[in-house]
Nucleic acid binder design. Structure first.
Length: 435
DNA sequence: AAGAGTGCCAACCGCCGATTA
DNA sequence: CTAATCGGCGGTTGGCACTCT
């Protein structure tokens, strides 16, 4: 018990992922979704364990990831969330669009703890160091596993075993640059409870800050992001009971307490499920056939895939949603389709051959530009999206970023201003504009 | 210029609860 | 009921790149 059987198997590769491996994994998940992770490496032709594939996808290949430096607001939010949640990185990450728990954890351990100490704040307790000096330093704020379990199962969040490292007042006091928005988020989080499965009594009102149409806005049980099972249940509940997911194909918006999320229009005749997305709730669909065309685009530093359905529903949606350019066609976000269906639906007798835009997948993956963009999951519209440069380029380049760097060097990609990038990090711009 | 020290981060490890046979 | 398996999580580590001396 405890250890995955796959870890015992021999001949499994470990260590850094090669571009070829990335391509295989990306190609497989692009077409079939991940399904059962333990079967992914075999089906994708990888000498990795499923766990490693899952990690690679979640932390690196997933196209909706936001890369690059954290903004000040993000850092502030992490600090504040850490004060409330402790080292529950996944829950913290769920509130930061496009950020992974690993990324946040690294940031915390490498930067934020230091910054807090420099400000005289104990990173473990979020109290002034002078108050905690006599009481030990930097103890983990993460409860032991049984405490975590009790916490996550608690219906009232912070009560009982949850040992929030600090009170709300204290954390809001000491987060140096916390803004009202973040404070409000934290307060609401605390007031709402912290149960990972649901906000108790969770009918939270959508607000109108970023809605395409107020009359399409309603209420539905809101759950924090990050729990696939819960979201799946939510999906089911919505599809069964929600007027917004009827056959009309109408879209609506929800504005969670942690950011506005717009529910895209839904294609008819598609299997719709929800998956976790850092930006918010988005439907994922099991696309019924390859007549659907995928076009990548990005919104607010996150990459999405637009689906041009073979039906006329898109026009209807466009009409419904007015001039919202992002909604003129149905869209879906990447990847994490229903685990139960995707594996079954995958027909491994057929080579991957879906469409991305007008480019069939085989073309997509033979185009190193596209591979590089995908495998490095850069949302090029963002100045925050950065790619590590590599110092050389050859046929054994260690990452697609290397290829991209080389393309820039050769003038095949738009060069970018590197003056403001720490560690010579290059920024990649407008990549999808070349597709 | 070279070695030591440091920081960053991708990936691994080990454990957990949930699910399944 | 039990054991096996799974996905998920947080802690830790190894290696690379950068900075300092």
């Amino acid at each position: 018990m405890g250890r995955h059987s796959c870890c015992y198997k021999q001949k499994l590769r470990k260590g850094l992922w090669s571009p070829e491996e990335d391509e295989k994994l990306l190609r497989y998940i692009t077409q079939y979704g991940h399904g059962c992770w333990s079967s992914v490496p075999k089906l994708a032709g990888l000498q990795r364990c499923g766990k490693s594939c899952r990690l690679r996808w979640i932390n690196y290949l997933r196209p909706d990831l936001k890369r690059g430096t954290f903004s000040q607001e993000e850092e502030d939010l992490i600090i504040e969330l850490h004060a409330v949640l402790g080292n529950r990185w996944s829950q913290i990450a769920a509130q930061l669009p496009g950020r992974t728990d690993n990324e946040i954890k690294n940031l915390w351990n490498s930067c934020l703890k230091k910054k807090l100490r420099q400000k005289g704040i104990d990173p473990a307790t979020h109290k002034p160091l002078s108050e905690v000096e006599h009481g030990g330093d930097d103890k983990s704020t993460t409860p032991k596993s049984h405490e975590r379990a009790a916490f996550s199962g608690s219906s009232n969040g912070l009560s009982q075993t949850q040992q929030a490292p600090n009170s709300e007042n204290t954390l809001l006091e000491h987060c140096s640059s916390s803004n009202a928005n973040n404070s409000s988020k934290i307060s609401n989080l605390m007031n709402s409870g912290l149960d990972k499965d649901c906000f108790p009594n969770g009918l939270l009102s959508s607000t109108s800050s970023c809605q395409p149409s107020d009359d399409l806005v309603g209420h539905f049980p809101l759950q924090p992001l990050g729990n696939y099972a819960s979201i799946s249940r939510l999906s089911e509940a919505i599809s069964n009971h929600s007027p917004w997911f009827g056959q009309s194909g109408k879209s609506f918006s929800i504005n969670t307490e942690f950011g506005c999320s717009t529910m895209p229009a839904i294609l008819p005749h598609s299997n719709i499920s929800f998956h976790h997305d850092p930006v918010g709730f988005r439907p994922a669909m099991t696309v019924p056939n390859d007549n659907y065309c995928f076009k990548p685009f990005a919104v607010d530093e996150s990459r999405y895939w637009e689906v041009n359905a073979p039906t006329s529903s898109g026009a209807g949606n466009a009409e419904l949603l007015g001039s919202g350019s992002y909604f003129e066609n149905s869209m879906l976000s990447w990847g994490l389709e229903n685990c139960n269906t995707m594996g079954k639906e995958a027909d491994m007798n057929n080579p991957p051959g879906g469409h991305i835009g007008d480019i069939k997948l085989p073309d997509y993956f033979h185009d190193p530009l596209l591979i590089g963009a995908a495998s490095q999951h850069q949302a090029p519209q963002s100045l925050y999206n950065e790619i590590k440069p590599d110092t050389h380029f050859d046929t054994n380049y260690s990452s697609s970023a290397m290829w991209l760097q080389n393309q820039q060097d050769q003038g095949l990609l738009p060069s970018s201003d590197t003056s403001s990038c720490p560690k010579n990090i290059q920024r990649l711009t407008a990549l999808f504009g070349h597709i």
